[in-house]
Design a protein around this nucleic acid. Structure first.
Length: 443
DNA sequence: AATTCGGGGTA
DNA sequence: TACCCAGAATT
């Protein structure tokens, strides 16, 4: 068979299949460019079933570009909580403001203008232009590369940028005249429902007759893809600090910096336990040194707390890091009494870690919870007292900033959780705490 | 070209 | 366990 005939067979039969088998998805119910845009951002590296409830809530709270542009950033982040890749949320709102200022609140239809929006790359630009405006632009994602690599038996590594460009040229040629909207979605729908990664359903595939990959028996070995390098392990010590006195019934949380991992999300205070030795994963730390180190890190931030004991273990997997968490229940201490003792323990723990670090890899410079020597030496004065324990306190929200690198700390109760965005792991830990799961932790 | 960005479903 | 998901931004 000729290549031209093979292409035509693909386009015709795939489009026919899609018109019968297309899923009823929330963002497909209206031809609203804003809905298409929001859905495509959410769907980046995220499954349809995961996105659906987020999409519905998001559109309910921010029904228009203007509503999104004018919303508090904190509220947008809260609506993204649990979805991951949080820079998508910040970029989406920034782009909504771009659309308000540059395009009068209407989604632009010009390719360059769409591509210039924050968070919109080659795939998303093509998806918006084709799905929202039916423009004949390719939209090549992981599904499309898998389908095309199999059907046309393309052995190029799909991790390479040059392969995506090649796929875009091919995908563009396949779009039937005037049918970009349906065809591009058909391509992705086939990848999601039939031409799946592990066990493709070739027997029900609408284009199996001329699929070069299947005919060659290569459907399970395509696409060719170099495997990602494994995530690095990190052992971290986490504090659930139970408030006393004016803070009774609350726990101490802090907000992460505006850039980097989990930017601007709230979390429980924690500290990197053992800088990983090259090639070796750092195992769990014994409770006694762990609690001393944890108390020391809190002290360096201006908080006096006594670790009571191990509450639980937890693991949190990112694409490039695996956090193994040792979670310790702690109690806030009265500054006038137990503080000197904790300060002494903290000094010892710090000295030990600082000494250990000299024989290992250098610390990441901007790691927010990493304790570096400068921070240590700056955390104590001659009498072992904090230099500026509490910089500011807001009675209404109980806001205070620790010293250190300017992170914001806050004592919160259960009622505060509905406006602050937490990564799932801390959401679970804090919820468990408020539900009484760690009440019986003791020394 | 390689890394950095979450979190969960699936076999 | 080991992928992989309607990828983009940064280095």
């Amino acid at each position: 068979m000729g290549l031209l005939e093979q292409k035509r067979h693909f386009s015709v039969n795939l489009l026919d299949w899609y018109m019968v088998n297309r899923r009823d998805l929330p963002w497909r119910r209206h031809n609203n460019p804003y809905f298409t845009w929001v859905s495509e951002i959410m769907l980046q590296q995220t499954r349809v079933d995961t996105v659906i409830p987020y999409f519905n809530r998001f559109i309910g709270n921010f029904p228009t570009v203007q509503a999104l542009a004018e919303a508090p950033e904190e509220e947008v982040l809260k609506n993204w909580e649990g979805l991951g890749y949080y820079s998508r949320a910040r970029n989406l709102q920034a782009a909504a403001r771009q659309v308000m200022e540059l395009h009068g609140g209407e989604m632009p239809q010009d390719k360059q203008a769409v591509f210039a929006l924050k968070g919109v790359g080659p795939y998303t630009a093509g998806a918006i232009l084709s799905i929202a405006f039916n423009q004949p632009q390719p939209a090549v994602d992981g599904n499309v590369m898998r389908v095309l690599s199999r059907y046309f038996l393309i052995d190029e590594d799909i991790m390479k940028g040059s392969t995506r460009v090649l796929m875009e040229e091919l995908a563009g040629e396949l779009i039937p005249e005037g049918r970009a909207r349906d065809f591009n979605q058909a391509l992705m729908e086939l990848g999601a429902l039939v031409c799946t990664p592990k066990a493709p359903h070739c027997l029900t595939c609408p284009v199996m007759e001329q699929c070069s990959g299947r005919i060659a028996g290569r459907e399970l070995t395509l696409p060719v893809k170099t495997k990602a390098k494994p995530p690095r392990p990190e052992q971290r010590l986490v504090a659930i600090v139970e408030g006393r006195g004016a803070h009774r019934g609350r726990v101490l949380v802090r907000q992460r910096p505006a850039t980097g991992l989990l930017a601007r999300m709230w979390e429980l205070p924690h500290v990197l336990a053992a800088p990983a030795t090259a090639g070796k994963k750092a195992g769990p730390l014994a409770d006694e040194p762990a609690m001393a180190l944890l108390a020391g890190s809190l002290w360096a931030e201006g908080f006096a707390a006594r670790p009571e004991g191990l509450a639980t273990h937890a693991e949190h997997v990112f694409s490039h890091i695996v956090w193994s968490l040792q979670v310790y229940k702690c109690t806030e201490q009265d500054q006038s009494n137990e503080l000197p003792l904790i300060a002494a323990e903290a000094r010892a723990a710090y000295d030990a870690q600082a000494a250990a670090k000299e024989t290992t890899a250098p610390a990441q410079a901007s790691e927010p919870s990493m304790i570096d020597e400068a921070n240590i030496s700056g955390s104590f004065d001659e009498q072992g007292e904090p230099l500026s324990a509490i910089a500011a306190s807001d009675p209404a929200h109980d806001v205070m900033s620790g010293k250190g690198d300017g992170q914001i700390y806050r004592w919160i109760g259960p009622e505060d959780m509905d406006k602050m965005a937490f990564p799932n792991i801390f959401l679970k830990l804090i919820s468990s705490y408020f539900a009484g799961a760690y009440d019986d932790v003791s020394e």
